[in-house]
Design a protein around this nucleic acid. Structure first.
Lengths: 150, 150
DNA sequence: TATTGTTATACTCTATAACTATA
DNA sequence: TATAGTTATAGAGTATAACAATA
């Protein structure tokens, strides 16, 4: 029987547990949680995103998104605008204040990233990325019911 | 500049996001959260563990552990016993009821695991495990301050 | 009717620091 | 004094379902 620490979730969690503290120390300096960071990070790359797109890119459930956006908006880092084309939709964008923050934080995040990249040789990263992405894609199309039915 | 969805945390999170729903559907049938599962899973492999060991193996912070154990104990799935050798220490073990649960759930968790393993060839798994464990080890010994100082 | 985003509810987990009892 | 576990506090995120406005 498989042991706990050889299970894929635990391997992934251990890796995250190794990597995230460095990031969290950085985020903490700017009073950001990991989820808030993901949202800002996504918004800094584009003009704006609709709530549904943002939820998908950040892997955050839609009802969670609302609260996290509320907090970011209250701090003036993002802003919500009702779309004119479809009055149901909301477009979310970084504010100027948010972009100022980006200029300060992104280089430091990049430094962490570079440090991490240097731990493994380039070809290991390619293999890692490919394997994990394959897994995620394959599993996204699979439910527990299908597995149990085998 | 690096994009969000190419960052290691996001790659790992996406993989978890692909893999966990299948497990969560299973856990939900037994009213278990992911964290509760980790604890039970660890306790099913051994006679007992001390709180500190359990926290380490499950990657759960000690104060979180207390509440999660409270809930598991209230359901009669685990039990806490004060150690006689060191009256400060607490040894935590699965109850008979917990072991009955194990017999029911573990084979289904194993089925998910087998399914996941079949997605990638054996050698990819070896590479993946090795790469991620190397990363976790290397990063655990690193603080943000060190990275920033480079 | 279907979709977008939001609200409501209830709960689990987290972070940090301080505390109790042992050692 | 140091350690093991717990408590206290305050908050963030999650899950699920239901809802209002709009399409």
């Amino acid at each position: 029987m498989l042991s706990l620490n050889a299970s894929l979730p635990m391997i992934l969690n251990r890796a995250l547990d190794g990597v995230m503290p460095a990031y969290r120390q950085l985020f903490a300096q700017y009073d950001l949680t990991e989820q808030q960071w993901r949202i800002l990070r996504a918004l800094w790359e584009v003009e704006d995103l609709r709530a549904a797109e943002l939820a998908e890119q950040t892997l955050l459930p839609k009802p969670s998104l609302v609260g996290i956006l509320d907090r970011l908006e209250a701090r003036g880092l993002v802003e919500r605008r009702r779309s004119n084309k479809d009055r149901r939709a909301v477009s979310i964008a970084s504010t100027a204040k948010g972009r100022t923050l980006a200029k300060e934080v992104l280089p430091q995040a990049q430094a962490i990233h570079d440090f991490i990249r240097a731990v493994l040789p380039e070809e290991d990263w390619d293999a890692l990325e490919h394997a994990l992405n394959t897994l995620a894609d394959r599993m996204k199309a699979t439910t527990f019911a299908e597995i149990a039915a085998e």
